[in-house]
Design a protein around this nucleic acid. Structure first.
Lengths: 338, 338
DNA sequence: GCTTAGCACTCGACCCTGCCAAGTGCCAGT
DNA sequence: ACTGGCACTTGGCAGGGTCGAGTGCTAAGC
């Protein structure tokens, strides 16, 4: 009884189950795949696979269904990369090219990803902390209010309005502008905060209160937790592909999808390269029957954020991984360009 | 046979059906409500109500269920305003008070609204066209790129980066800044576009190309379709309260909820004051079993945008309307202040 | 003239039953 | 090591009977 064939059987089971969504029996297996042996042999293999916890039968007289462990094995050792069709590539390209700004890129990514995979798409907005400062602008609005604008390398623009105790002189503003810009442009956000702190000493003591409020606000923007946490979700209607039992299968997932914190943790798994979490691996009770495929993306080499999909654990892993990868690469290229 | 009692019967049917989600029969009705007549009388009334198309029986031996027309009648003539509990008021207040910026206000509104009503909450971001220009800033970024920032009275900040054919002189930039600011601040967005057009003549012909691109971009921002269309949706998990039949009842709704255009049209119904669309009135095939409660909201008197909820047509109308109204009022107050 | 009690009737929900097909595990044979 | 054959298990499904809720109608009562 060769190990090779047993794995081949596992692959066949996963593929058939993903395609038909019904437990697959030994007879059907030999018919659909030319395994070169009889159904009885397959049954023996299946018995072993079941002992190893890779497949499972819902009830005695039913076919076999892969377990989470089975999917894991499939993804790790059996899945062959599936190339996207030219039509799909073109769809991604044309759809994403139409984007007008960063927000739009993210929105469109979610849409195309949901459409390609028929699953729920999740895209994290590019993270501030890993990007660099492209420009900072300081604009007096009226007697005591100042507008701060920060533009980052990922194309994100953050703005804050600061209320000051007293009106700053025009001179001070331009001084602030040039010095802060000089110290921070090109730096990564955490470093930019440090440079600004260094700057403090170079201002006249009388100006300190004003300088402090502005610098504090900017530091806040640089280490802004909230904007790191922005996430776009789409394609929830695809949850229909789960089971038909709404309350037990879908409702908890929908609820989880509104918990940004959970989503962030899910996406966070993908630190280096594509990552797949199956069932319990998601670390979330209510995502029992689901799997998450996620990958980092970003301009040039550094990862800015993560995107991925969530679907039933009985999903087309090769196809999904290909789609997620392709969209991530394309968005990365877009961000790198501008 | 008094008209009054018949309407009272309709109210009782709606209320019971909303509470139990089961067809309500004549016997149950007289037991739960002290109508002072026997079940036979109620049956006669019911027959008339059915003739009028206000109620309907799923099958011969079942109780009655309100039709869309019945709900309509209930909402128009029977619903009494239900005051929110102090606890609910406090929840709205404390939750919304924590908001840090406009985006956050909208996000939080969606959350609290979904939570209060146990339905899907839909909140449109404040519309640009009805708000006024608070400030415009023009910032040269590098040799040929310029950043435009528009701040509106609703607290929204829009920014665009414009690529110019040649670098503008510092003088031209400051000229542009002062003239445009002078012409537009305080104006509503459509008027602001007109004022800018008037301005064009006052620039030297040599500067025209640059001025034109900048003005065009700003005009674009002012009449920006896309940002008018931003909408936040939350509480989709509450769709579980529909039927249990996912594919026919819930899936189409989920799909519809991802169509911004449809959502906008739904919310658009509420032009003056609160509006309720029931079933076919939503003008959308796939929203057959649902109803939308929407209301405009905004700082001071003018409506900036619309918010509302979507739920099963068998919903607690008085309660939902009270919640939507309360959140809208509170958000309006927030926007007016800052 | 409106209301009521009574009654026959209808029809979905539920339960039980038996049957069928799918699929398994095992054993003996090659 | 593989295969054919066979007994066995079991969920799904169709058929049939019962039950109960609810109705409409009619005749009597206030």
């Amino acid at each position: 009884m060769s190990d090779d064939r047993r794995l081949e059987v596992l692959r066949a089971i996963v593929e058939d189950y993903v395609a038909t969504q019904e437990p697959v029996g030994s007879r059907a297996l030999v018919e659909r795949h030319h395994l070169g042996v009889s159904s009885a042999t397959i049954r023996n293999d299946m018995a072993v696979l079941e002992d190893e916890g890779l497949i499972h039968q819902p009830h005695t007289s039913a076919g076999r269904v892969p377990t989470d462990k089975g999917y894991r094995m499939f993804v790790d050792r059996l899945a062959t990369v599936k190339a996207l069709s030219p039509a799909e590539r073109r769809a991604i390209e044309t759809f994403l090219t139409g984007a007008v700004d960063l927000d739009d890129v993210v929105q469109r990514s979610v849409r195309i990803l949901a459409q390609l995979t028929n699953q729920v798409a999740i895209v994290q907005y590019p993270t501030l902390t890993r990007s660099t400062v492209r420009h900072i602008e300081i604009v007096p609005l009226d007697h005591s209010r100042v507008l701060l604008v920060v533009i980052t390398s990922s194309g994100r623009v953050e703005q804050r309005i600061v209320e000051l105790a007293e009106a700053p002189s025009e001179e001070l503003v331009s001084q602030l502008r040039t010095r802060i810009v000089g110290a921070t442009v090109g730096e990564r956000l955490p470093e930019a905060s440090l440079r600004m702190a260094d700057l403090m000493g170079s201002f006249a003591p009388a100006d300190r209160p004003i300088v402090t409020s502005i610098v504090t606000t900017l530091t806040h923007v640089f280490s802004n937790e909230r904007s790191d946490e922005r996430i776009a979700v789409g394609g929830t209607a695809n949850l229909a592909r789960f089971g038909s039992d709404f309350d037990t299968a879908i409702r908890p997932v929908l609820e989880t999808l509104e918990e940004q914190v959970v989503l962030l943790r899910l996406l966070g798994e993908a630190t280096a390269g594509m990552h797949v979490s199956i069932g319990a691996e998601t670390g979330n009770e209510s995502l029992a029957g689901t799997a998450v495929v996620s990958t980092p993306y970003g301009a040039d080499e550094q990862a800015l954020a993560t995107m991925g999909t969530l679907g039933p654990s009985r999903m087309d892993y090769p196809g999904t991984m290909a789609s997620v990868g392709a969209v991530a690469r394309y968005v990365g290229r877009l961000l790198a360009d501008g």
